[in-house]
């Protein structure tokens, strides 16, 4: 079976005062109809990888790759018009900061309805009904009231779920979810994961799940790529993340505070300069 995404030697660079800064440094990965987790420390290039796939790196940022393909179609050479069609319909991204990504002067309801109607021919009443159902599915209380609110009037976790609802409503084949549950309480988090999981299982969606929650990724994903300083340092089966070998991954696992096993002090990571230099590990299928 063919992959949904194939990426080889992807780099993202930004010019800065002190020369060019490479946020992503030649990573390779593919995505099947699976749940691929990306973990790694702040600034390691997780979000930039997601944005590069969608053609959303703003100038003066630069994206290069030997191959960046969605089911055989090159995303590097696609026209802006084609990319707009791909975004939403084929690939959706739940942005890390939902409130920033939502339109501040449009009600939540109108935004979800618009997201649906740009990709599908549906009447207003039908779109309203589906938007309401979607909010209900992501466990929003009183969805009728919330449809009428503006983004600044909803809580952090509500904003995140509204963004999820908006991205899922056009039924994408690939979903890139950037820290999609970081603002959710654990109970709602489970419900939201269940929705994404169902889409992977029942509709064969491919999911890239970016998160810093290692336990969550270990339990929820199929494969995990661990990023450090713009490269992939380790790839493993998610269920075996706790058997990881790379000292960086072990360091990350060690710094998680555990409710049941309290410690007086959390372990902070000591970074080894050699980690930056090691070649990127391939996450191709």
């Amino acid at each position: 079976m063919s992959n949904l995404l194939d990426i080889e030697n992807l780099s993202v660079r930004f010019p800065t005062r002190s020369g060019s800064f490479e946020a992503v440094r030649g990573i390779s990965l593919s995505l099947g109809r699976e749940r691929l987790g990306i973990v790694g420390e702040s600034g390691s290039g997780k979000s930039m990888t997601g944005r590069a796939i969608l053609g959303l790196i703003r100038k003066p940022g630069q994206v290069t790759a030997d191959r960046l393909e969605m089911q055989g179609e090159s995303l590097l050479t696609a026209s802006p018009k084609r990319m707009r069609a791909i975004r939403g319909k084929h690939i959706s991204m739940i942005m890390q900061d939902p409130k920033y990504s939502l339109n501040p002067v449009m009600t939540v309801g109108d935004q979800i309805i618009e997201a649906l109607r740009t990709h599908e021919k549906v009447g207003k009443a039908e779109a309203y009904k589906r938007a309401l159902e979607m909010l209900d599915a992501v466990a929003i209380r009183e969805p009728e009231r919330v449809m009428k609110l503006y983004p600044h009037e909803v809580s952090g976790g509500m904003g995140q779920r509204i963004m999820i609802a908006m991205m899922l409503i056009p039924n994408p084949e690939i979903l890139i979810a950037d820290e999609p549950t970081s603002a959710l309480d654990v109970s709602v988090q489970l419900q939201v994961l269940e929705i994404m999981d169902k889409l992977v299982r029942e509709r064969g969606m491919g999911l890239i799940f970016i998160s810093h929650d290692l336990n969550l990724v270990a339990g929820f994903c199929d494969r995990v790529a661990v990023m450090y300083a713009g490269r992939i340092v380790e790839v493993c089966e998610a269920g075996r993340l706790h058997e990881a070998k790379h000292p960086y991954t072990l360091g990350l696992l060690n710094s998680v505070p555990d409710l049941e096993r309290p410690r007086p002090r959390l372990e902070a990571l000591t970074r080894d300069p050699a980690w930056r230099e090691a070649p990127s590990v391939s996450a191709l299928l």
Partner: peptide, 12 residues
């Protein structure tokens, strides 16, 4: 919004 290693540093 922080990864666990930075989180550990901030919490400490």
């Amino acid at each position: 919004a922080l990864d666990v290693s930075v989180q550990a540093e901030i919490l400490n």
